[in-house]
């Protein structure tokens, strides 16, 4: 799959309270959650993104609570994928379970500027910055995770088995 968009950079340890503050968790409506995506990390974030844009996090992206509202808000806000130096465990799990593509790369962060256009090719495992100026490898995804994404998330994967 190909993901193309501008990157928006964030620092290390972006927690789920920054991605979607708990004060908005009284609903699980994706459209409402999308309005507050990344609000406590950058209050102007939702106003500046375009569909397809990409979040670029530092270490331990998505730490904190288990709220799936975090990947839901990111997906519903129109972002195409998240790249980070590393991900917190539950966020990593949730993203695969719901089909939000995420990739790990330590090299990309220092090499791009906020708002720069990148292309991610998950099939060949490469990230290309601003029309080929630089390129980077991304870690491959374990085969089981690929199955999850191919099925459209954990529930669809299981529903097949469950409904026989």
């Amino acid at each position: 799959m190909i993901f193309q968009g501008r990157v928006w950079k964030f620092g290390d340890n972006i927690d789920t309270d920054a991605i979607i503050p708990a004060r908005y968790l009284t609903t699980s409506d994706p459209q409402q959650l999308a309005l507050h995506c990344m609000e406590d990390a950058d209050p102007r974030f939702v106003g500046k993104i375009k569909p397809g844009d990409i979040i670029l996090g530092g270490e331990n992206f998505g730490c904190g609570s288990s709220r799936e509202h975090a990947p839901i808000a990111i997906k519903a806000a129109g972002l195409s994928c998240v790249i980070a130096k590393s991900f917190a465990r539950i966020f990593y799990r949730n993203s695969f379970n719901m089909g939000l593509p995420i990739f790990e790369s330590k090299e990309l962060w220092p090499a791009v500027n906020d708002g720069e256009e990148i292309t991610v090719d998950s099939t060949t495992g490469t990230i290309i910055v601003s029309g080929g100026r630089k390129s980077f490898r991304i870690n491959s995804i374990p085969p089981f995770m690929e199955q999850l994404i191919a099925a459209g998330g954990l529930i669809k994967h299981i529903a097949k088995k469950y409904n026989g």
Binding site: S65, S66, E68, I90, R93, N94, M98, L154, I155
Partner: peptide, 28 residues
């Protein structure tokens, strides 16, 4: 809920997951 890890105090394996995981576990 991420603080599900609390029950490790009892000598259990307890871990926080997402809602989709909970759905899968409730099902199967």
């Amino acid at each position: 809920d991420s603080h599900t890890c609390t029950y490790g105090a009892l000598g259990a394996f307890a871990t926080g997951v997402g809602s989709t995981d909970l759905a899968a576990a409730m099902l199967t």
